[in-house]
């Protein structure tokens, strides 16, 4: 059965004209302390992207940051603003604009999926009729339409994740906090979740903050990334710009005289490193050199290129660089 999949844009998609609008999130010296433990320290940043990845190793403060922005924890110093509204003084107004998909299993026992999502929509302020209508829509949207009358506790982990997403988007928030949305999902379920997140991003209905320790998820969904380490913000990067500015790497597997080939590409201006396996060579490609130039040299040197792995500087590289920074500022 073919079904239309439409993302009707109700809210304006972000554009250049929004540069004058307040940033999605503005961290202004935000600090959080639990007893004697300092969890977040002097976070400062302005985030404006459509989808922002929140990265960091376990215990770096990603979830605490989200919880603080949601008002679950009071800041011990500084503050933050979401769409220009202060989380300390305008917490209710902030939460009216937010949808939250928690990391842990979260549901109310004894409720069906549609009952739970409708209940959450009503608590967000939707009138009962609109809440009912949107609960059905949200569940169909995430792919749980057929299972919506089943009790949530009978769902698989992947389905529970989708219910959490449905309750987070049911009231059409302007900002979505997704905390580890692909946790525990098998590859097809993970792909479905990633696709949904990208659709929401592209639809422009909501900005997204995606917290994850899975770099691939963030790389696939986000345009900007914030990296936390030990409660400090060590990197705030625009992924596209980073990729553009970063070098390209090649791992070439060949047959023939690799030493002659290496000399030839060295003369061309490429950095290279011979690998323990004599058939392989690692090459850093300068911006002015194209891959076809390597094939030309290989042909001239009578070397066969059997395999060529090409990769740009990945999020992993950005992340690893950030982790090497001890206490960096942005």
């Amino acid at each position: 059965m073919s079904q239309r999949r439409v993302i009707a844009v109700g809210a304006p998609a972000p554009s250049d004209s929004q540069d004058s609008a307040p940033p999605v999130i503005e961290l202004d010296g935000l600090g959080v302390r639990f007893g004697r433990r300092q969890i977040l320290t002097d976070l400062r940043s302005r985030m404006s992207g459509r989808a922002i990845g929140l990265l960091g190793p376990n215990g770096s403060g990603k979830t605490t940051l989200i919880h603080t922005l949601l008002g679950f924890h009071a800041p011990s110093s500084g503050t933050a603003r979401i769409f220009g509204r202060d989380i300390r003084t305008e917490a209710r107004a902030v939460r009216e604009r937010i949808g939250y998909m928690p990391e842990n299993e979260s549901f109310i026992a004894g409720m069906t999926a549609v009952g739970l999502v409708r209940y959450m929509a009503e608590l967000s302020g939707l009138p009962p009729r609109a809440a009912t209508e949107r609960a059905h829509e949200a569940l169909f949207y995430v792919g749980l339409g057929e299972a919506r009358y089943r009790k949530v506790e009978t769902f698989s982990l992947g389905m529970k994740q989708l219910v959490k997403l449905a309750q987070a988007i049911v009231h059409a928030p302007k900002l979505l906090f997704l905390d580890e949305p692909t946790n525990g999902l098998d590859p097809p379920a993970r792909q479905r979740m990633i696709r949904l997140i990208r659709e929401i991003r592209e639809g422009g209905i909501a900005r997204i903050i995606l917290s994850s320790h899975l770099l691939r998820d963030v790389e696939e969904c986000c345009e900007e990334v914030v990296i936390l380490k030990e409660g400090r913000l060590v990197t705030y990067a625009n992924l596209e710009e980073e990729r553009r500015g970063n070098r390209r790497f090649l791992l070439i597997e060949m047959r023939g005289d690799h030493a002659t080939f290496a000399d030839a590409i060295g003369r061309l201006g490429c950095e290279y490193a011979l690998q323990p396996d004599p058939r392989k060579i690692k090459v850093v490609l300068p911006p002015q050199i194209e891959i076809r130039d390597l094939y030309t040299i290989a042909a001239e040197q009578r070397v066969q290129i059997r395999r060529l792995d090409y990769r740009r500087d990945s999020l992993q590289d950005i992340f690893m660089k950030a982790m090497e920074t001890s206490h960096g500022g942005v």
């Binding site: 009138p127 059905h136 829509e137 169909f140």
Partner: peptide, 29 residues
């Protein structure tokens, strides 16, 4: 809005008054 379209859209309708929202809990209970 027909649910078979798998449509997700923004909500621009009226909201219920915040002062009476606590009554949603007893209603569902």
């Amino acid at each position: 809005m027909a649910v078979y379209e798998h449509t997700y859209r923004a909500y621009d309708g009226a909201l219920t008054p915040p002062r009476t929202r606590f009554l949603i809990i007893p209603r569902y209970a």
